[in-house]
Structure formats: C-alpha cells, structure tokens
Amino acid sequence: MKALTWQGNMDVQVTDVPDPAIEQPTDAVVRVTSTAICGSDLHLYGVLGPFLKPGDVLGHEAMGVVEEVGSEVSNLAPGDRVVVPFNISCGHCWMCRRKLFAQCETTQVTSEGKGASLFGFSSLYGSVPGGQAEYLRVPQAQFGPVKIPDGTPDEQFLFLSDVLPTAWQAVQYADVPEGGSLAVLGLGPIGQMAVRIAKYLGVGRVIAIDSVPERLALAERYGAEPLDLGSVEDISAELISRVDGRGPDSTIDAVGMEAHGGAPGSTFISLAQKATGLLPDAVGQKVTDKLAGDRLDALLGAIKGVRRGGTVSVSGVYGGEVDPMPMMEMFDRGVQLRMGQAHVRRWTDDILPIVSDPADPLGTLDLTTHTLPLSDAVHGYEMFRAKDDGCIKVVLKP
C-alpha cells in the first residue's frame, strides 16, 4: 500500500509499505478514506527525528471503513464506518476506568516512561504505524474506534480523531467561570476549535491570539475578539490591560514547543531544536530526553496574562525537561495549570451529537482549507508548516 513515511529530518515521502494485517485478536484493519496533517506531525517533521527511523508511517488523525476484525472485536463489523482516536486505549485498565485514556496502562510505553501508545508518533509512543496511509491496523479496536453514520461527509466527523476532543478538553480544563473570559493563544486547528467550543458552551468573552491574518479572521467569524500578536510588544500585559486590568479568567496555550516570539532564549532554543534533529539517533535521543528545551513564548504569555487565581490550560505539545518556568510569579499569583494529551474517548460521546447536527454548530465543515490526494502529502506538509496559501488544515485522501 501507499503511505506517507518519515525518511529523515525535514524529509517525508510517499512510499510503498507492507499492507497491515490482524496481529492480535483485539485488532481491526481500516481502509482509510480521510486522514489529516496535525501540528504535532510537524514536531516529528523537524524536531523529534532522533526517535524515528526511515520508513516509519506518520499520521494520527484518520477515519475509514472497517475491512477486517479480530476474534475479540464484537462491536465492529466489516463495512462499519469509523473514526479512529489518536491514542490507543483498552477501555478497561485502572487508568481507563478513571477515563484517563491517554494514560492507558495496557498500551503505556513504559520503556520510554510515556503514556498510552499513539498512532504514527515515534518510538516514544510505541512506533505504531500511522494513518496517513491507504490502510491502518487499529489495536484495541474493541474500545477505540467511534462508529459514525453513513451518507455524511468525512470532514464532518474526521476531527473526532484528535482536533475536537483536544480542543474540548482544553476548554474543559480551562474551567472558565459562568459569564467569564478566555484567551486562546494560537489559532491553528486546535485553537480555532477551542474558540468555537468556548462560544458554543457559553463563554462570555473569547480573545483569539495569532499573527496570521486568515486565522484571526476565521476566529472572529465565530465570535472571538481577534488580537494580532504582531501589533503588541507584550501579550501578557495587553491581556491584563484589555480585561479589567486583571487579565482573562482563563487562558489556553494551543501552540506548544515550536512557538514563535521574542521570549528570552527563543532564538537559541530554536537553533538547538534544529541541531538536535540532525544528531545521530543515539546521541539525539539522549539530548532530547535529558536536555531538550521548548520555545515557551505562548506558554509564558498564557501564564503571565491570566488573572490572579486564574487557570491555564495547555493543549500544545511540549517535549523539554529543563524548561525554565516563572515559579515565583505562578505561586504568587495563584495560577492553576492543567495539561496533557487529550483523553479522546472521554469526550467523544459529548461531541458526537453536536457534530451530527446538520446545522454544523462548530463549523467542522469549514475547518479544512486544503484537500489533497495522499500522493501530494509532501506538498501538504510543506504548505502547512509554512502557513502558505491561508493553510489552516490539510486533509489527505488515500
């Protein structure tokens, strides 16, 4: 089959790889009909190369039609249409019983000290082949896949794989008080959906922050107050000034480790991230694991811009272990911090009725700006990374 594979730092290619097959009785094989490129894929593209090997199949946002199921999968049958959550969870372990599906103990990558296995996301998370391919083997299929109705556009449900649950969790973790205010830093797909979900759930004031005009305009269309990052010198001071001299009740960092900005050390860390990706794997893995740093502009803006006693919700992915945090300021201001991989199946039952509504209240059908054949995936990566041509979300069709 054809699949998008990692070949080296900043080098992905569509190649021939073996077709997946049932390996465990809890597996299913899905014929992929749509798969998306995520911001997290860009971390693999340029930063986390030491944990990948040439030929690894990328992608963790996929949906399609069930082709085959293992003997212990009784909830699915060939022909069922499903969305596949990006994290692989069993549904019955200690963590799953507490709805902490991103920490599933059945699929935890204990050798790397990481949580549940993820599709297409390096040896750190199990080296499970991803969904930017014609077919996908789905472990723990007795629990993970979400069945969806026939006769509806893929894009109406595709984002149940990651974008919607991640944004939903970000808003839930932000814990905005009734009638309160929220600032969302970063208006990629997660930030866009966080804005829409916040407004849908009744948040009184949503400030949407980015530097890309098309992204600001799209967030404004869904009721947010746009704030151009390039128009202010200090985003946290601007947020405090705009919201009663205190700052918003809650903030969401929807950016992560590769934020752009002018925080101290950002340029050095950016160069270090690129250099680490070019090191031999054995060296690069040790450097990344023990010494990695993140570009913290968005996180620091979220922490310093929220009001005293407010809540910071982090959905952007971070990989560093030596990041300097403003602990004195966080402690003095009583800031609450919540974060983590989305527990996808914890939220899908809440979201499914909303995206099933023909009125499309969250605008799932207009988030996709570019639809390409899988054969053009390399161009999709380049365009998404550069934010060219108003690119916000790329969907690939195998």
Score class of each variant (00 low, 15 high):
Pro361Met: 01
Ser127Ile: 03
Pro50Arg: 09
Pro373Leu: 02
Leu44Gln: 12
Pro361Asn: 07
Ser71Ala: 15
Leu48Met: 10
Val14His: 11
Glu220Lys: 15
Gly301Arg: 07
Gln341Val: 15
Ile22Gln: 02
Val30Asn: 06
Ser117Arg: 09
Gly39Ala: 07
Ala217Gly: 08
Gln192Met: 02
Ala342Ser: 08
Gly305Arg: 09
Asp388Cys: 02
Tyr222Lys: 15
Phe143Arg: 05
Ile88Leu: 12
Lys114Cys: 13
Arg333Ile: 13
Gly340Tyr: 00
Val243Ile: 14
His379Phe: 11
His60Asn: 12
Leu372Lys: 03
Val171Met: 04
Arg215Pro: 09
Arg81Asn: 02
Thr152His: 13
Gln192Pro: 04
Pro398Ile: 03
Gln336Ala: 11
His92Glu: 04
Val283Lys: 14
Gly46Val: 12
Ile22Leu: 11
His260Glu: 14
Lys393Tyr: 00
Ser375Met: 08
Val109Trp: 01
His379Thr: 15
Thr26Phe: 07
Ala237Ser: 09
Arg246Ile: 13
Pro149Val: 06
Pro139Gly: 01
Gln140Met: 14
Arg385Asp: 05
Ile392Tyr: 01
Met383Thr: 14
Gly186Met: 05
Pro85Tyr: 11
Arg221Glu: 06
Arg97Phe: 11
Gly204Ile: 09
Val14Thr: 10
Pro177Lys: 00
Gly301Glu: 10
Thr311Pro: 00
Leu201Ala: 07
Pro165Tyr: 06
Glu68His: 08
Gly191Ile: 03
Ser375Gly: 11
Leu48Asn: 13
Arg81Trp: 08
Leu158Glu: 11
Leu185Asp: 07
Glu178Tyr: 13
Ser313Pro: 05
Ser117Met: 08
Pro50Tyr: 09
Gly284Leu: 00
Val69Arg: 10
Gln7Leu: 13
Asp210Tyr: 03
Ala183Asp: 07
Thr33Leu: 06
Arg196Gly: 01
Ile240Gln: 14
Val32Ala: 04
Glu321Gly: 15
Ser315Asp: 05
Glu67His: 01
Ala275Thr: 03
Lys2His: 14
Val344Met: 09
Gln24Asp: 14
Lys274Asn: 01
Val306Gln: 00
Tyr200Met: 12
Ile354Gly: 04
Met339Ala: 12
Asp332His: 10
Gly46Gln: 13
Pro145Trp: 11
Lys274Phe: 12
